[in-house]
Design a binder for these strands. Structure first.
Lengths: 344, 344
DNA sequence: CCTTCGTGGGAAAACGCATTCCAACACATT
DNA sequence: AATGTGTTGGAATGCGTTTTCCCACGAAGG
């Protein structure tokens, strides 16, 4: 427990009988040549002393680090953890360390995190999570990120092409619209949508596009219920729909679209708890196609997003010095499953 | 994109008309006193220049950082992401940044990660994920971690009290044993277990304890099927059980215990795919009580582990300079649900 | 009026490393 | 033998901070 002195480069150099400069060159194969014999001796000494270079010192000496920072809204949300997995994989491939921070969906917290992160001078900052409109931190965030970029870092957003930075943009609108069409194709006519607050872009985009899809089919405007962007929110919204009697009567809602899978799963559970049989009851569809969508019964119809790949794209984009307006679109595909069986 | 010069402490000092020393003292309220007026001017200058201290430089100057490193086996596994969430929360409370690395369940990779991490000189390294026996990296890992600790860092394990470091130990054995008893209490008599390779301690502990529980009840030894420690593994093992005819015949298996929830859910899906009705078919139980256990139908019986809390304990433990043999036990509780309805 | 504090500011040394520059040397070429 | 060329080691410098250490100043005490 007592602070044993950690071996430093000088120690290694001394043990190997060379200068610090030579040791440095030997250790990280510099452009400069070092005699084989010396290299061997340095390596040996380093191993013997259990030497590990002080990354902070390296960072300060060379003026650049080898870490990327990832800020997510919440780790235990499968959406983010899948993206994080992709980022981690991409980072490993590029030999980078990833530091992660959780914003808990709060724009203020997000801003504060970016500020702190900036101090780490990471190679890149990857910001994931829906943009939130009307957040009064927006300008401050842009300023912070811009400052970071002009200092040589690169910024990547995973969300909506809203801020002036390269972004990996998931095709929310297209997916939601095509999902609506697909459901119409399966014979559904009466829709409801469970969405989150309108200022959450992801929710709004998906919601509006779905409504558009339904409208384009010449069908009645969907009923909309608003709730938190979480499983509990989905559950609550479903209960509201039930309480309103939307699922009963002579003209009941046939299918409910929730703007993400965790909400959809919450809603499914609510319906089941209310005694609405999965088969004969109301159909449910979600968005994101998280792993759990397949484990739930009936399997959840969803819009598939290649989440892991999204994370990997983000790393690529970050490392490529892309211009600020660059947008990498990510296509989504419809996965029709048993939660929305063909009607009639 | 051009590398704009980043504002440095000297810049701030110059702008405020003071020396770098004073600026430093003003910025992070040192023990030394600084005149109010100067403090104000420095703060003002810092804000104007959008100054952010270079954390690496700070680290090197004060000889300590404010980050903790977390190494997990996989982010997209709900088990780890819940723990990660706890760690992130605890870290935030202590004003620490967390850097995360993914070992993909490979001991070699884990070792390599620890080595790299050591270079970051974090305040603590938290290692999660089952210890794997017979791994020839074990000694190297211990050596590495010991070196790290004698250099002033603290190490915390979240797993089995196996390595000579403080560890947060989940009561796997107790939970599995009590689960067996509870199932016996519900009338089950014929058991099967789906576990992972024996050298994965977590799996082995849970498996053995469950078997012990069954044995103590004077019942027939459970059938054991081995598979990967993943959802797919659970699915595969379930298929093996089906293929062996263990669920049919005059003396069929009544309940299958999988050593973690993702495996259990995979198994449930396999049974359902095979046409075994959830109600009338085979019962299933898991371990960990991940969020999905409640969303699945029928809701999964499991052993509840306070995963978030585990993460928070780990941070606490890391910050408390605990002695190497300190073990924080984490109790588990049985959550009986519809996947194991009372029999007869 | 001269010493002794206490207060707050600045110059400079460290921190651990990479890198630039210079010196030394060996060797080949005239 | 004198000069050029290429190779390798070391001393010195710098990176952005914090932290001694010293110094100037004014107040209090004699």
């Amino acid at each position: 427990m007592q602070d044993g002195p950690k071996a430093t480069l000088r120690d290694v150099a001394r043990a190997a009988g060379v200068s610090a400069a030579t040791a440095s060159r030997a250790l990280n194969g510099s452009a400069r040549n070092v005699r084989q014999e010396n290299i061997a001796r340095v390596l040996e000494a380093a191993a013997a002393l259990n030497y590990e270079p002080h990354l902070s010192a390296q960072a300060i000496a060379r003026g650049s680090t080898s870490t990327v920072a990832l800020v997510v809204s919440g780790v235990d949300d499968p959406y983010f953890s899948s993206i994080a997995a992709g980022v981690a994989a991409g980072a490993e491939a590029a030999d980078l360390t990833v530091t992660m921070a959780v914003s808990d969906r709060s724009p203020e917290r997000e801003l504060q995190i970016v500020r702190t992160l900036r101090g780490h001078r990471p190679r890149a900052i990857i910001l994931t999570g829906s943009r939130i409109e009307g957040a009064d931190t927006r300008d401050a965030l842009i300023e912070e990120l811009t400052a970071y970029r002009t200092a040589g870092g690169s910024v990547v957003m995973i969300s909506q092409p809203d801020l002036p930075f390269p972004t990996v943009a998931i095709d929310n609108a297209g997916g939601a619209r095509r999902l609506a069409q697909a459901l119409v194709g399966r014979g559904y006519r009466r829709f409801a949508v469970i969405c989150a607050a309108d200022r959450i872009r992801t929710s709004r985009d998906r919601c509006q596009a779905f409504v558009t899809g339904v409208r384009e089919a010449g069908l009645r405007e969907p009923l909309v219920a608003e709730a938190e962007f979480t499983r509990a929110g989905g559950y609550a919204a479903a209960r509201v729909l039930i309480a309103r009697g939307a699922l009963a009567g002579e003209d009941p809602i046939e299918v409910v679209f929730a703007v993400n899978d965790v909400m959809a799963i919450g809603a499914m559970t609510a319906f089941r708890d209310a005694g609405l049989a999965p088969g004969g009851g109301v159909a449910v569809a979600g968005f994101d196609d998280i792993a759990a969508a397949l484990d739930v019964v009936p399997a959840l119809t969803s819009v598939s997003v290649p989440l892991r790949a999204v994370g990997e794209y983000a790393i690529e984009l970050a490392l490529s010095e892309a211009d600020p307006t660059r947008v990498v679109p990510v296509a989504t595909t419809i996965a029709l499953r048993e939660s929305t069986p063909p009607l009639r």
